[in-house]
Nucleic acid binder design. Structure first.
Length: 1118
RNA sequence: GCCGAGGUGGCGGAACUGGAAUACGCGUCAGCCUUAGGAGCUGAUGUCCGCAAGGACUUGUGGGUUCAAAUCCCACCCUCGGCACCA
């Protein structure tokens, strides 16, 4: 007998037929259930490559094991067959996509069957089958019914080469996911699904499911939940223009007069009466939210107070202003003409009853319509605590306010030009953060910071995105990188309002750097002495090392600094040539093009006794890093404030985007960022809101090969439901196709070519398009857009539960039994696509009480890719595709299955290596041989080889039994962890020992066959059946190994009685020692000290300490 | 830039609840077998020094903690995947 007798080709097809005939994988609908799911493939014309089966094999192993453990397992397969490649192929060849799909699925099925998967093929589904997409359409109509499907004009991502609109999820940094071409923005009417309505639950419910952490994180990032405040900034016209510019659009006069008047204004402000002062202090506090100015020039006059939004003038009459009295009549007349109302108060009235005065003013304000006030702009911010640091407001170029204020914006031409430029910029260059920021100020208007009533400029800039938040931001250049850059470039003021907190020394941040404030440095102190040097190794937006050193004999400061840095960092070409304040800059510059490996070290010191407000530096024997804020570090070394670095900061050379304590914020000074966010939002009348990055799902595609959207448009109905001026016109005129008329089938057409106008090829089929309205019976047109590929896959796992049902998408009873999916394996590339979409659909169906669980998948795992032999992603265009057919032909399906599982960790990518396959094939041949070695296999044992080295083998029956039980344990546990590679390795070890031992019993061998059967089902079945034939005839009572029970191990048999321990001297292994497993430490020590090797290494010294790790190590320290 | 995964022999990888690093497999070398090639079988195989016994070094880099570190801590470098001006 020879190993060549193992003929995979013969046995594999034999058993595949037999299993199919006996229907051993047919699923029942009762018992202890286990639903194992893999992503169903898109059946492309190229067939499977070796990467495809990897996840199927993995889940097949799990499904098989679960079956052997007595579960009723649902492990189905189907086809996600709508999609572009098939359609493109149809365009090219004129073949109907249906035919192409049939051909492709037949091929895929054949290939899969060749690999021996235990799919229940009786439950196969196909998304392009009208009986299937009937229910896809039905679910869509439910979305429509509930108002979650709506048609909206939106800028969509358009791929000019595929001629198709793409969902945001399908655009990869500005490029089309399929063809890689650049996408552009196009305005188009599209069907949308309101996935954003579920954003919060899609985020929150991730807590309920067992997904890999990275998948959860990626979904959370994609949903992009952020809590913040919405705050309104009032917009006013600019009051006083710069000299000489004030003619049109302002209330002021020519520049000459303005100058004279302005002089008088200043004088008046200086000599304000007590009453004026009191009133101003009240008015400036933003009375009722309106903004007042004092001593405002209007025409040739100066008014005391004015609220421009309401065109209300307030005059205070007193003796000091008597010289103006003669003008008053004339002035009131002028103001009336300009639309101002004038209210007068006397000094005494204000002084005696300020609250009464304010009440009167409020009444006037309430009564008046909005005048010159220009409304407001809402901004969204997560950092309301920095509101006092807002020095300008920025609008997205698309912001409607810009158009609305066309007449008020004095440089509208310039603004318009800028907006146009931005529109023509590609998405890519617009979101390119490395490019310099651009923008234009909107002249003629100002925004009012609601926190302090300051007037601040309004800008338009494309770094503000229209889709997120409100399309407008409040800019806080001191505390935001983008605002900082922008402010630097356009010379806008920077005001610091948050300072980082000091580090709490009792609880310093220790693990990781997550909770360490940004402006914190690790301090490494080195021989502090009188002549101090401090160097902050400070990286952009991050933090690095602080080096502190002393001046040695004869050195000046610069030489000492140079030496210190060279010593500490190894940067040999750094030289300090300027005074202390510039050292940092010099160092930073040279650091950039240097080898950054070296890192400062030195003696470490414990720092600071804060309570005594005295700094004490003490050397400690243990080397622990110490965390300090920059300020603290400065204080230690220089002892006085302000240190160099802070001076630079105050000159606006840096920003701080962390949290901390408020400064420069009126009554909020001293609050923490967290508290201040709430209180300031409240103070300015803003509200706390939650925003998401997630956007609604663009659900229409202008292509043929997809599910038709089951709606018709009826103009008659549109007129009836939608009266002009009413806002209820959403989806007006769109009428759902009645349930009884579903499915709306795709018509057969000849030309599948998409049009350049972006319309579906279906538009041309007039017979199909023109129909009657189900509601009014009048003329109506069908929707010609189809659904995206992600539609059918969003619910397919439900259909598997009840694939033949033609009354419901699946019966409640069966859904109750099978759902949720117990284990779903798929690719990471679907994390923000299919996985998110199907969770959304499922939650929607759950809300309609149509499915029993709020989440579709209890557990999700993902597999790594199999790369080409060159380590690149396997693809036709790279020419590195390996076809499984050839591999199966040469080596057999079992070998391929084993190899793909042995290649590396299941969840990691691994390069294919045809050369290495032979290893697992040899393993199968070896086990085949050993089967024939096993006692009683075919009657008396056949000695296969005369082994000259048999005596070398130590494997006696007891050892073999122990190993067998260890292997049972390991294989079982590894399958659950998807550590298939180590499971196989364990079986190889067992087999190597079995072969050597010559003492294999049929009983043990059969246990091994069970362990192997999920991995290599064919060879396991063949040998299993052969082992049965020795006693019985095979055909009489065939029972597949795959329906046998999974073996159990005996914990007692795994325990070692005698163990080898390593004997170490000072942590280095010098020899080993065999001892009973339950030996005490004392006994081990005695034995060990007798060993010659130990004697040698001790060299007469006495052990100081011994450490014994039972069964493993004895370490003797001298 | 941010988030995530990873870096161990010539290669895929194992060990990561701190306890003998390199299991298992590929490749390579030597031997057996064979008319030959292939396949198969047996043995060796981290690096350096050494005739050998033996010793030293070694898990991306530099430090630290520990009797003991691939594993824990700090910093840095590189590769891959995702996001990318998200206020």
């Amino acid at each position: 007998m020879k190993s060549q007798d193992y003929n995979p080709k013969k046995i594999e097809t034999k058993w595949q037929k037999e299993w199919e005939k006996k229907k051993i994988y047919k699923t029942a609908d009762a018992g202890k259930k286990f639903y194992a799911l893999v992503e169903f493939p898109y059946p492309s014309g190229d067939g499977l490559h070796v990467g495809h089966p990897r996840p199927y094999i993995g889940m097949d192993i799990i499904a098989r094991k679960k079956r052997m453990e007595g579960f009723n397992v649902l492990f189905p397969m189907g086809w996600d067959a709508f999609g572009l490649p098939t359609e493109n192929y149809a365009v090219k060849t004129g073949l109907h996509p249906k035919i192409v799909t049939k051909k492709n699925t037949d091929n895929f099925r054949k290939q899969m069957k060749m690999l021996g998967f235990s799919f229940d093929w009786s439950r196969e589904v196909n998304t392009t089958d009208p009986e299937y997409y009937k229910w896809t359409q039905w679910i869509f109509l439910k979305f429509f019914e509930k108002g979650l499907a709506y048609k909206a004009k939106s800028a969509i991502n358009w791929c000019p080469s595929c001629k198709i609109g793409l969902a945001n999820e399908e655009v990869i940094s500005g490029n089309c996911e399929r063809c890689g071409g650049l996408t552009e923005k196009r305005e188009k009417e599209q069907w949308m699904l309101a996935i954003t309505k579920y954003a919060d639950r899609l985020d929150k419910d991730l807590d309920l499911v067992d997904y890999p952490e990275r998948v959860k994180i990626q979904q959370r990032n994609w949903i992009g939940k952020s809590e913040g405040s919405e705050i309104e900034f009032k917009i006013n016209p600019t009051p006083a223009p710069p000299k000489g510019e004030g003619e049109f659009g302002y209330h002021t006069t020519d520049s000459k007069t303005w100058k004279v008047l302005q002089g008088r204004v200043l004088e008046m402000r200086k000599n304000a009466t007590e009453a004026e002062d009191i009133l101003w202090q009240s008015l400036r506090k933003n009375l009722m939210g309106y903004h007042f100015r004092r001593q405002q020039i209007i025409g040739n006059f100066i008014v005391d107070f004015v609220c421009l939004e309401k065109s209300l003038v307030i005059e205070v009459d007193g003796d000091i202003h008597d010289y103006q009295k003669k003008e008053d009549g004339e002035r009131t007349e002028f103001l009336k003409q300009r639309g101002f109302q004038v209210v007068r108060f006397r000094n005494e009235e204000i002084l005696s009853n300020i609250s009464g005065t304010l009440e009167k003013i409020e009444e006037h304000l309430k009564a008046l319509p909005f005048g010159e006030g220009l409304g407001g702009v809402k901004v969204f911010t997560t950092r309301a605590d920095t509101l006092f640091g807002v020095t300008y407001v920025v609008l997205a170029p698309e912001h409607e306010l810009i158009k609305n204020l066309k007449l008020k914006i004095t440089n509208y031409n310039e603004v318009e030009k800028y907006v146009e430029e931005v529109k023509n910029k590609s998405e890519l260059s617009r979101t390119n953060t490395s490019e310099q920021k651009t923008g234009v100020e909107l002249k003629g208007i100002k925004a009012i910071n609601p926190a302090n009533n300051e007037e601040i400029p309004v800008w338009v800039a494309d770094y503000v995105l229209p889709q997120y938040g409100t399309g407008a931001v409040m800019a806080v250049p001191a505390h935001d990188e983008r605002d900082f850059e922008f402010a630097k470039k356009f010379n806008l003021p920077i005001l610091e309002v948050v300072v980082p907190d000091r580090v709490d020394f009792k609880n310093p941040p220790q693990r990781g750097k997550k909770n360490i404030p940004r402006r914190t440095v690790q301090v490494v102190l080195r021989r502090p002495s009188d002549g101090k040097i401090i160097i902050l190794h400070w990286k952009h937006n991050s933090w690095k090392t602080l080096i502190i050193g002393g001046v040695e004999n004869g050195e000046d400061l610069l030489q000492a600094a140079t030496r210190e840095v060279q010593e500490e960092t190894g940067y040999k070409n750094i030289k300090f040539i300027k005074k202390l304040g510039d050292m940092y800059a010099e160092y930073f510059a040279s650091h950039k093009n240097e080898n950054r490996r070296a890192y400062a070290t030195g003696f470490l010191f414990d720092i600071i006794d804060e309570e005594k407000n005295k700094i004490s530096i003490e050397e400690k024997s243990k080397h622990e890093p110490v965390w300090l804020s920059v300020e603290q570090a400065m204080k230690i070394v220089i002892g006085v404030e302000p240190p160099i670095f802070l001076t630079r900061l105050e000159q606006n050379s840096w920003f701080y985007d962390g949290e901390g304590t408020l400064i420069n914020s009126n009554s909020f000074v001293g609050l923490s960022s967290k508290e201040a966010r709430k209180k300031i939002t409240e103070f300015v009348g803003g509200k706390i809101v939650t925003k998401y990055k997630l956007r609604d799902w663009i659900f229409s595609r202008q292509r043929y090969w997809g599910e038709p959207i089951p709606l018709v448009y009826c103009e008659n109905c549109a007129k009836q439901t939608c009266q002009p001026g009413r806002s209820t016109c959403l989806n007006a005129g769109w009428v759902p196709v009645p349930e009884k008329d579903l499915p709306v089938k795709l018509p057969d057409i000849k030309n599948y070519k998409p049009t350049n106008t972006g319309e579906s090829p279906l538009t041309a089929i007039e017979k199909w398009v023109n129909t009657t309205c189900p509601t009014c019976g009048g003329k109506a047109k069908r929707e010609t857009d189809t659904m995206p590929n992600w539609a059918g896959s969003s619910w397919y796992y439900l259909r598997y539960c009840d694939p033949e049902n033609n009354k419901e998408f699946a019966s409640q009873k069966k859904l109750d039994y099978w759902m949720p999916v117990d284990w779903y394996n798929g690719g990471t590339e679907h994390t923000t696509l299919h996985l998110l979409y199907s969770r959304f659909w499922h939650k929607f169906l759950y809300d309609l009480k149509l499915v029993p669980s709020s989440e579709p998948y209890k557990k999700r795992t993902s597999h790594g890719l199999i790369l080409g032999e060159n380590g690149e992603k396997m693809s036709k265009s790279r020419g590195n595709v390996i076809n499984p057919d050839g591999i199966v032909k040469t080596y057999g399906a079992d070998t391929l299955r084993l190899y793909e599982m042995f290649i590396g960790p299941f969840d990691q990518d691994a390069p294919w290596s045809t050369e290495s396959i032979i290893g697992v094939r040899r393993f199968l041949e070896r086990m085949w041989r050993v089967a024939l070695l096993a006692k009683d296999f075919f009657g008396p044992r056949v000695a296969l080889r005369a082994q000259p080295d048999t005596q070398k083998s130590s494997a006696n029956s007891a050892i073999l039994e122990k190993l067998l039980h260890k292997t049972i344990k390991k294989v079982g546990e590894d399958i659950e962890k998807m550590s298939f590679n180590t499971a196989i390795s364990a079986m190889m070890i067992l087999m190597n020992e079995m072969e050597k031992s010559n003492k294999v019993t049929i009983k043990d061998y059969k246990i091994f066959l069970k362990l192997l059967s999920p991995f290599a089902p064919h060879i396991a079945e063949e040998l299993w059946q052969r082992s049965q034939t020795s006693k019985k005839s095979p055909k009489s009572d065939f029972k597949s190994i795959h329906l046998e029970s999974w073996p159990e191990y005996d914990e007692a048999k795994i325990k070692d009685k005698e163990v080898k321990i390593a004997v170490q001297i000072n942590g280095k292994t010098r020899t080993e020692l065999a001892v009973p497993a339950d030996i005490t430490k004392e006994q081990v020590c005695v034995k060990a000290l007798e060993l010659p090797a130990v004697q040698k290494w001790l060299a007469g010294r006495n052990p100081q300490k011994t450490i014994y790790i039972p069964g493993r190590i004895l370490n003797i320290v001298v």
